[in-house]
Design a protein around this nucleic acid. Sequence first.
DNA 1: GTCTATAGTATGATAGAC
DNA 2: GTCTATCATACTATAGAC
Lengths: 221, 221
Amino acid sequence: MVPVENTRERLLAAAQRLFAQGGEEATSLRAITREAGANVASVNYHFGSRDELLRLVLEGYLEPINARRLAMFDAAVAEYGDHVPVGVLLTAFLRPDLDALADLRAHNPQIARFIGRAYTQPSASVAGFMHEQFAPVAERLIPLLRQTLPQVPEHEVRIRLGFVVSIITGLFATATPAPDGRPPMESPDIYVQLARLIAFLEPGLAAPPPPGESDDHRHLH
Amino acid sequence: MVPVENTRERLLAAAQRLFAQGGEEATSLRAITREAGANVASVNYHFGSRDELLRLVLEGYLEPINARRLAMFDAAVAEYGDHVPVGVLLTAFLRPDLDALADLRAHNPQIARFIGRAYTQPSASVAGFMHEQFAPVAERLIPLLRQTLPQVPEHEVRIRLGFVVSIITGLFATATPAPDGRPPMESPDIYVQLARLIAFLEPGLAAPPPPGESDDHRHLH
DNA sequence: GTCTATAGTATGATAGAC
DNA sequence: GTCTATCATACTATAGAC
């Protein structure tokens, strides 16, 4: 009946492609509409503004990843109860990212970089949005880590989780075959990647906190 | 005799300030000249182009850090010989960054973010430049790590060093007091920060490589 | 829903007077 | 070395015809 929404879908797909290749500021309204074969006004009509469209694109990638993380946390608790092993928690946290990364590498080898940049380059318009997406995951994971690692204070757990996030971010940011740069851990096998990350991260997460940390400078928050 | 070069210095200083506050694409040629009290043509006259100027600013921050890293590697080898402890190598690698970070936080709390972005957001113009700055450090450090950790294959050492770089990058990228986001490890004490990083990183670097890695999928490069 | 046309504003670079 | 003036080009957003 209604032939509607065709342009809208084309615009979304075009924004994904361009976002992928050049990042946010390279994805101009005019480039999007050109790529989609639509006119310059169509983005404002369908999405209100360029920024709204870019947020939608970003959400399309991040939301499924974080939803899957939460589901894997639930499954882990159902299986292990109060003391989920660190390796299991790390797997639940990392696998959705690695799967998404493998998928992006196969189908769109450029868009992963954009996601990585969205973390470190909040660009004002997506700044709060990134945190809004990630906060529920952190608030669920941190208590679980605390239960498994009671010797590590919460403040330290949060910082160490930040380290893990930085590494993941780096994987996304360097996913593209850069002409030169650090080797992007290009193994195609997800389980090899996961094993490598866990081998590196697990002992660090469980390590005793450094001296002078347990109750030092903790008088605020 | 010659009153020359005054404008040039003012332009450099202005570019640093603006670069710091808003990142690369927020630092327009016109904003720089306005901040420096010069005219729009002066940047092109003194530096050839806007990109040349921005590379100079970046180099002013990165070059001293990497030079200090190399010096600390030399000092460590002079003291320990062929088997420098991992913690000492990590200290030599991390301290120049942490010192620079502390200095930036004190004097210019915004520019650290820009440096972090320069890593993950190579922005075409500075892409090769970042690698050119970092490559000598990596090529010096990796053999030292290999000597201390012979059980970890070189391929794995390189990947793990990439993890360390990601974490450092994250520290720079989140150095600014973000309104919300992961806690930026805001301890003012560099030695606390260093101890925290080493406590987390050292066991991961020295960990036995994951199974299926030693000689797997190593038939290329 | 889709389009053209355009307003309004930014950009980097350069020519040429002083 | 420094300036003004200007070129050529990008951008987002909107008004209004169809």
